[in-house]
């Protein structure tokens, strides 16, 4: 690519106007909903932001956000490791696939809330219970992506690489990994998004701290403003992860797909 890194970053940030406009539209609808149904059902956006600010000043938000991030990322990393290793085995060996696929399907079928209850019984109301829930709900997604990636490795590219007597590290880095990433990355992105949701849910039920715990206490106090403020905190976290981490990585990985039929203009700005 001839464009400099700075130009690409500027292009990306400029593309944020679209996302900003869309979020402002949603806020306008929220305001209209507040006008129609009143504060108890839907507090005003301004009050919600003010409540979030007050809670932050009181030192409640940052520790909760960190706690939730630790639970979500811890569980997600464990899931990536377990799902990745087992998925690679299932992709490489037919027997392993037959053995593991039904288990993955079964795990995917069990509702996340059931895992929350079970892990609370097994691990008590601790962060471990939350991480375990994230691990068990996310790992099958990573597993499926990895297995698919390994299974669809292109035999003719491998043959070409062997004909050039390519050493194993180059084979892995230039031939296997880029192909795998095109399957693995969407699975990881979906897994990560799920991790946050499951974490908040598990925290809410376990009282193990974090944003979920804050939501639980808002529910007890019937404080809709506070509840919405916590929702805002989760949404902020999700948006930050999506646009500061996932989207830039996605663009970097997919440069070679630019203007490929059916992929849209992946190389241009805009969210």
């Amino acid at each position: 690519m001839s464009r400099s890194r700075a130009a690409r970053i500027l292009d990306y940030v400029w593309g944020g106007w679209g996302a900003g406009a869309s979020l402002l539209l949603l806020t306008a609808l929220w305001e209209a909903g507040h006008g129609a149904y009143g504060t108890l059902v839907l507090p005003a956006p301004r009050d919600t932001f003010a409540a979030l600010w007050t809670m932050s000043e009181a030192g409640k938000v940052l520790p909760a956000v960190l706690e939730t991030s630790r639970n979500a990322l811890g569980g997600f990393l464990a899931a990536t490791l377990a799902g990745g290793v087992l998925g690679a085995a299932a992709g490489a060996s037919d027997m392993m696939r037959r053995l593991l696929q039904p288990i993955a399907t079964l795990l995917l079928g069990i509702p996340a809330i059931a895992w929350v209850v079970l892990s609370l019984l097994w691990f008590g109301g601790t962060g471990l219970a939350v991480m375990f829930t994230v691990l068990i709900t996310t790992a099958p997604i990573v597993f499926a992506g990895t297995a698919q990636g390994v299974r669809t490795l292109d035999g003719s590219l491998r043959r070409m690489a062997l004909a050039f007597r390519v050493p194993a590290p180059v084979l892995l880095w230039d031939v296997y990994l880029p192909h795998m990433l095109s399957y693995l990355f969407p699975a990881l992105a979906a897994g990560l998004a799920l991790s946050w949701k499951v974490t908040v849910m598990a925290e809410l039920l376990s009282g193990a701290g974090g944003i979920g715990d804050g939501l639980a206490s808002a529910r007890v106090q019937v404080d809709t403003v506070k509840a919405m403020a916590w929702v805002l905190a989760v949404v902020g976290l999700l948006l930050a992860v999506e646009y500061l981490l996932l989207e830039p990585v996605r663009r970097h990985l997919q440069v070679w797909r630019r203007e490929m039929p059916g992929t849209g203009a992946a190389g241009t700005g805009g969210f």
């Binding site: 003719s156 590219l157 043959r159 070409m160 004909a163 050039f164 230039d174 031939v175 880029p178 070679w256």
Partner: peptide, 15 residues
């Protein structure tokens, strides 16, 4: 010895 195949077998993710 070096091969040229019927399918160019280029790496799609490299320019």
């Amino acid at each position: 010895p070096v091969f040229v195949f019927q399918d160019p077998c280029l790496l799609p993710w490299r320019d």
